[in-house]
Design a protein around this nucleic acid. Structure first.
Lengths: 240, 240
DNA sequence: TATAGAGCATGACGTAACGTGAGAGTCAAT
DNA sequence: ATTGACTCTCACGTTACGTCATGCTCTATA
């Protein structure tokens, strides 16, 4: 398919396709003699992935990192994307509720606190407000140590995939819908290995930063990933 | 409330608030001696509106136009926003379905056409493909003319509001979720006055461009609005 | 009462993801 | 052979902020 066809099919502009080619995000599989871009079916699937990630707010640079990552697996990525879309839908539902409340309050049927007014918008509810409670730490460390030993090939792969995604999100808001969807994945993953209460989960997050062994391992995937994960895990535990 | 408080409450950055002040989008009701921005409750409600519109993809410039417009009515705006959010949720649901299909097809359980692959992304399904069919034109004109005469104050106001929103969307994709939500509003409005089949609705759109009387009236709200409305109405009729 | 530290202000330059022409080559149909 | 739709590559413009730098303000505490 040539640019215009792809553009018409997908709704993105020709310029956008040019741009994605320029930055190496989506390089057409074929180029004709005359220099015309020709997109393969493979290319279209990749574009679909790109648009999904873009929809949930990933910057192109991170999308590229993700797609380029050797641990990237299309199938699993689609599953992750599904989770994110579901999370986004939930956020929209919260926003719709907020509007309904607003409509009532504008009619004078009820009053709203300022906090209520921004439900669904507020992705930043100060994740730093609580001090670390070491109480959960040891329990979490023990569990983690015990279970990593049982890891098989498949688990390692899935773990790497999740780390990659989280690494791509570093520096963004740990309370964002995307970060929370990714960390939810992480929680689900861990629970395949052992039972984690939300408190233990948050405690494990603290350990990621407090304990050098964790910190070093995790930060291999990206400087500061451990801190980011801790923050995201704290928020996750608070909100669920 | 001072900047930081507002930022923490709403999740936007302080810089963003500064920016909104700079461009006159959200000017704090009060400024202290020292030049500190102080946001009122009124301001917060406006910010809420801004964030809603931003969420569905309006550029700040258009948001400002909307809020500044004399025909702008907070309550009705919230209702419009609700419609848009619902539309967006529907879009997300389509995307989730698309992913589910993709997952099945990746597992080899079925195959997908390229078009299916981008359902939910494709907001541009060529609205120009069909030629105008004058057949509906006269009927539509007659109805419209007959009914405008019965307009009361309230109807005029609502009409103006819808026109304003649509005018703000000019130049964007008439098939976008936002444009379609706004045009759906228009369809609902018209149906309060008379019964319009979808075909008649599309035909009325053609008249907006073909008939000078319509064109002139409508374009008062913004150059090219009639064309934009025609396109949006055509898409709407095709998709519903 | 002095001083630190958090918060605020205003520039001003940087960045991401394209939009928007300009100028020129390509291709299929008439 | 020519037209019209499509394509290419520069290259500068735009939106919505991010990110310092530099300096003032306020309040809690020594």
């Amino acid at each position: 398919m040539k640019v215009k066809e792809v553009a018409d099919l997908t709704g993105v502009s020709v310029r956008t396709l040019h741009h994605y080619d320029e930055i190496g995000l989506l390089v057409p599989d074929e180029v004709t003699e005359a220099g015309y871009r020709v997109y393969s079916n493979e290319n279209l699937t990749t574009l679909q992935q790109i648009l999904f990630f873009r929809e949930v707010g990933f910057p192109l640079k991170k999308i590229k990192e993700l797609l380029d990552s050797p641990s990237f697996n299309r199938l699993e990525a689609f599953e992750l994307q599904r989770d994110m879309l579901v999370a986004k839908r939930k956020q929209l539902e919260t926003m719709i509720e907020t509007i309904d409340n607003t409509l009532q309050s504008e009619r004078g049927e009820r009053t709203m606190t300022n906090e209520e007014k921004f439900k669904g918008f507020d992705f930043s509810s100060n994740p730093y407000e609580q001090e670390a409670r070491d109480r959960w730490g040891d329990e979490a460390v023990d569990k983690a140590n015990k279970n990593v030993a049982q890891f098989g090939e498949k688990e390692q792969q899935e773990m790497n995939r999740i780390y990659s995604v989280l690494a791509a999100l570093r520096g963004t808001n740990p309370a964002s819908v995307e970060a929370q969807a990714a960390i939810a994945d992480w929680y689900t993953f861990l629970n395949k290995i052992a039972d984690y209460s939300l408190e233990a989960f948050a405690g494990l997050g603290e350990m990621y930063v407090a304990d050098e062994r964790f910190m070093k391992n995790i930060d291999q995937f990206g400087e500061g990933l451990s801190v980011f994960m801790r923050d995201a895990m704290k928020v996750y535990a608070e909100k669920n």
